[in-house]
Design a protein around this nucleic acid. Structure first.
Lengths: 140, 140
DNA sequence: ATTAATACGACAATAATAGTCGTATATGTT
DNA sequence: AACATATACGACTATTATTGTCGTATTAAT
């Protein structure tokens, strides 16, 4: 419960890896898949999705791969998660709101408040803070 | 993703309902199930679990049901969720930590920090703030 | 006795997540 | 031109987590 999906994890690992290189450098999906033991096909599809979203730039053909494109400080964790997984919410009625209960529901508003708190944590976190190398990101 | 389970939702609805009554009053599972359109058997099992955890007191036989027991201000959302769903963490290595990656993982510590932030939101929220009737919990 | 409630293990159904396969397309190298 | 190696992507399968059901036992008021 309340877990990140592997899709998001893999995407973060990939971005972190790519941004560890010199700007403009190309990274192959295979390289990441091997280094972090991620199924290649799955990772490939994730990178393709990031490419469609212009977060990464694809380069085809041999010597191809992906190039970091958007500065990670420009993407919030909320945006990122929602790009990969769709709208985020602790509860369905935070998203679509066709629920049998709704009018008789006695926890809707309080949960909505909790949801907003969580969401603002994610809103205020940039990917740079997760994949970047600021304080705290040292080996234990 | 990042959703509460129905189990948790149903449990919160039930507690909120029970705590809306006079102290000592008994509530039947059936009553809650009907009012909020929750499958009776499922709700029953959840209430039984809350009874085992001493959050609620069971009363058997006809005219039986459950009686609110623990003051809701005394239970954090973290405790509650973990009672119902087991340990909570954005990522498995926040919980058990047998992961093929681990040593080579490049996002472990940063994710752990995010996890701690979320967790502290839940730690600092009591059920009273969710099921109780303080500010904000009015019909929209 | 009967009835209406909880207790609970085992099972079944559904849905979400994770992963695979096949095939097409692009492009550098020979 | 042929080949090798990369991305692109839809369709499929497998696995796991969640949600819900069933059957049966127990308790206790009437």
């Amino acid at each position: 419960m309340l877990k990140l999906t592997r899709k998001v994890e893999y995407a973060l690992i990939a971005l972190q890896h790519m941004h560890g290189k010199a700007p403009g450098d190309i990274t192959k999906a295979k390289e990441i898949a091997q280094q972090y033991t991620i199924p290649l096909q799955l990772l490939a599809k994730i990178l393709q999705q990031l490419a469609r979203e212009k977060i990464v730039e694809p380069v085809q053909g041999p010597n191809g791969g992906y190039r970091a494109k958007v500065p990670l400080g420009a993407i919030s964790l909320t945006e990122f998660v929602e790009i990969l997984e769709g709208p985020m919410g602790l509860v369905d009625c935070n998203i679509d709101s066709d629920c049998i209960q709704l009018h008789q529901c006695n926890i809707r508003l309080p949960i909505q408040r909790v949801n907003n708190t969580i969401k603002s944590v994610f809103d205020n976190l940039t990917l740079a803070q997760i994949t970047g190398d600021e304080a705290g990101n040292k080996p234990s």
